[in-house]
């Protein structure tokens, strides 16, 4: 675990830079993490972020497929908004854990 400062707030992060607690998150923190990922946030980006946070609060595991079916964005748009690893990048910006994979 490491501590990082975003937008003047100290937050606990995993070694890979994911927030430990969604409760510590706010929009300014999200914006600064997005900058580290070279992403300029737009209203559409935020719409995706709040969808991810809602799903996380419900305890639903997120996959690229489920996001494509969410009605919020298509998979193609998701890639355009968060290029390369969209789910990983978007989860980091949203302050939710890194999506689970295997070993």
């Amino acid at each position: 675990m490491i501590e990082k400062t975003y937008a003047g707030t100290a937050v606990a992060c995993t070694d890979e830079g994911y927030l430990q607690e969604l409760a510590q998150w706010n929009k300014s923190i999200g914006t600064e993490i997005a900058k580290e990922e070279s992403i300029d946030m737009t209203p559409k980006h935020w719409e995706v972020i709040s969808y991810l946070q809602d799903q996380n609060k419900k305890g639903t595991a997120l996959t690229i497929r489920s996001i494509g079916k969410s009605g919020v964005v298509s998979i193609k748009e998701f890639y355009e908004l968060f290029p390369e690893g969209p789910l990983k990048k978007a989860s980091r910006i949203a302050g939710i854990p890194k999506p689970v994979s295997c070993i």
Partner: peptide, 11 residues
């Protein structure tokens, strides 16, 4: 689709 052949840091 994962970020490596092994994705957990230890492995």
């Amino acid at each position: 689709p994962m970020d490596g052949a092994f994705t957990k840091p230890k492995a």
